[in-house]
């Protein structure tokens, strides 16, 4: 008999709790920031940081629609994301010293981005894709931080998430991270430098898999079904399969789509992908081709995978 929605939720919670205990309890599931010397000797380059910012899609979640000052994104947060767990609210990460990240150290910011740990030492929810950013090069993270500090300040306070009861306890996220946060590449042996660059853009920065890969009952990505398409996080419909088992476009056609939003039939992107293309159109042609080459090199997965 299929479990009811509530049944699934209770089961998920129970599994998280049991695993957290069985995994060694508090010690193994405690929030672990980056080591104190993680950024030693690195100097941020805001110009490259702007590229990392676009490639990582930060603005898609952390700006309200169209929020700009003199062409620069205002990272005041406020966008809401409905999910099976409740509604997540993107926080203010503008340079405001009180409401945003202006008062954080570089190391605190890097720990948030790459470890999902707040300056106060709490776990972040993985709606923030730190599991992808964990794979990013430290230099790129330092560059990104330098760029974030150049963006406008906004004093709007972050809004709290509105989550269902079992998910309000951040301690259980330690168990989740233990199970699902991995810095192993999904494609271990890229066939060319171009595919390797694409792998970095897709797996570490672009976090495409967050929507295009299905999740298990605990919300972890199913790495064996990488990019095979998934039910939408909210609302009807599916996020498409973008392996060659589901997408028959050429590498050049995928790169063009990431630039202009036009499909080979001159239909256009819709839904959340419109926001994604606002980011990918800022990348170089070479980087868009690298993303497309990486996708073309993935194992083809059929619609029934």
């Amino acid at each position: 008999m299929p479990l009811s929605w509530n049944g699934v939720m209770v089961l998920r919670l129970a599994i998280v709790v049991v695993l957290a205990l069985a995994g060694g309890g508090w010690f193994l599931t405690r929030p672990v920031p980056l080591p104190a010397d993680a950024l030693d000797g690195l100097i941020g380059d805001a110009a490259n940081g702007a590229v990392i910012f676009a490639a990582s899609g930060c603005a898609s979640c952390h700006t309200a629609a169209g929020a700009e000052t003199e062409g620069l994104p205002v990272l005041a947060g406020g966008r809401s994301f409905a999910s099976d767990y409740g509604t997540f609210m993107a926080p203010n990460i503008s340079s405001d010293p009180e409401a945003g990240i202006g008062g954080w150290t570089d190391l605190e910011l890097a720990s948030a981005i790459q470890r999902g740990v707040s300056p106060e030492g709490a776990h972040y929810y993985p709606a923030f894709p730190y599991t992808a950013y964990a794979k990013a090069a430290p230099q790129d993270i330092v560059d990104l931080i330098a760029y974030l500090r150049t963006l406008p300040a906004d004093a709007s306070p972050s809004l709290p998430h509105d989550l269902d009861l079992p998910f309000r306890f951040r301690a259980s996220l330690g168990g989740w991270k233990l199970l699902f946060a991995s810095t192993d590449w999904v494609v271990p042996d890229p066939v060319s430098p171009e595919v390797e660059r694409g792998r970095y853009l897709v797996e570490a920065l672009g976090h495409c898999a967050e929507c295009h890969t299905p999740r298990n009952a605990l919300g972890g990505l199913q790495r064996d079904l990488w990019m095979a398409g998934a039910p939408a996080a909210s609302g009807p419909g599916r996020v498409p399969n973008i392996t060659t088992g589901g997408l028959s476009w050429s590498v050049e056609e995928v790169a063009e789509y990431l630039k202009s939003g036009f499909t080979p039939e001159f239909d256009t992107a819709g839904g959340e992908m419109v926001e994604v293309i606002k980011n990918t159109r800022q990348l170089s042609d070479a980087d868009r081709l690298a993303i497309a080459s990486y996708l073309a090199a993935l194992p083809p997965l059929g619609p029934d995978s």
Binding site: R238, G270, V274
Partner: peptide, 20 residues
């Protein structure tokens, strides 16, 4: 012109078309 057309088509498909 294509960039502007893409923007106009995409804006409508973002808000008024259901996912596949």
């Amino acid at each position: 012109g294509m960039q502007a057309m893409g923007g106009a088509c995409g804006a409508c498909h973002q808000n008024y078309r259901v996912r596949q």
